[in-house]
Computed example of a mutant assay.
Amino acid sequence: PLGLKEGVLPTQRSSLSNAGGNFFMAGVGFSFIFSWLLMLLVLITFVLGGNTYMLVCESWRSQQLFQLLDTPGMIPGFNLSELLGQEGGTVNFSEIYRQCQRDAAIWKTLHLDQSISLDEVLNISQYTGEISTAFEKMNITLSPISLLSQSQRDLLLNASQAGQPPDFTPMLEQLDQNVTQGSLLGLAAELEQLADKVVRD
């Protein structure tokens, strides 16, 4: 084989064989030098991923995370009910999560009807008085609309009175004239004779 000489040390063989050995040894050396970085990356991934799963994902599934967040005083100065404008309300994260799983409306989930009553806001009868007074205060005056002036009206009346039915006599005379110069019956007879000749031949 190329570069192989038995009984000769590898460093004394051809340049090709020596270069291959050098690259092989360099690869092994670099693997030992930099493999600790890969192992460290794997270690960090396992430590962070495992703890994140156990602390966040598992507690989210068992709803222990929500119970922790619902604990009064867990987050200093944070009260979800007060943020939503409900004095003495009982809104908590666990209830919100359960209601969202049941596809409940956000208005019902956050108990916003305790702070804002939609029945009062959307009751139109309280606005009808204001609307009526606004309409009464409005003053709308329309100037008379004239589509045609008097001269145009006179022209139309004169045209309608002077109108006579059209005279169709010249058109009927033109239609009665023969378009062709010869007789069509004679032409038809000649064509029949030619057809008979063709059939006989």
Rank of each mutant, 00 (worst) to 15 (best):
Y53G: 04
Y53E: 00
L55W: 03
W60V: 13
W60G: 05
R61I: 14
S62W: 03
Q63K: 02
Q63W: 07
Q63D: 11
L65N: 03
F66H: 03
Q67P: 00
Q67S: 03
L68I: 13
L69D: 09
T71Q: 08
P72A: 07
P72T: 01
M74K: 08
M74I: 13
N79W: 03
L83I: 11
L84I: 10
G85I: 05
G85N: 08
G89W: 08
T90E: 13
V91T: 02
S94V: 00
I96A: 03
I96G: 03
R98M: 11
R98G: 05
R98D: 07
Q99W: 06
Q99N: 15
Q99H: 11
C100D: 12
R102M: 13
R102A: 14
D103S: 11
A105F: 06
A105N: 15
I106T: 03
W107G: 04
K108G: 05
L110S: 03
L110G: 01
L112T: 02
D113P: 00
D113W: 02
D113S: 01
Q114V: 04
Q114H: 05
S115H: 06
S117L: 14
S117G: 13
D119A: 09
E120L: 15
V121G: 03
V121F: 00
N123P: 05
S125F: 11
S125E: 13
Q126R: 10
Y127I: 05
Y127K: 09
E130N: 11
I131Y: 06
I131F: 12
A134F: 14
F135S: 01
E136W: 08
E136A: 07
N139Y: 01
T141N: 05
T141S: 03
T141C: 05
L142M: 12
S143E: 15
P144M: 09
P144D: 06
P144Q: 00
I145R: 01
S146P: 00
L148C: 10
L148Y: 07
Q150G: 07
S151I: 04
Q152K: 09
R153G: 11
R153N: 15
D154F: 02
D154M: 08
D154W: 00
L155S: 13
L155I: 11
L157M: 15
Q161V: 12
G163W: 13
T169M: 05
M171Y: 05
L172W: 07
L172A: 02
L172C: 05
L172H: 04
Q174E: 11
Q177G: 08
N178Y: 04
V179S: 10
V179D: 08
V179K: 01
T180L: 15
G182H: 00
L184Q: 12
L184M: 12
L185C: 14
L185E: 11
L185D: 13
G186E: 13
A189S: 11
E192D: 14
Q193R: 10
Q193L: 15
L194T: 05
A195Q: 12
A195I: 06
D196P: 02
V198Y: 09
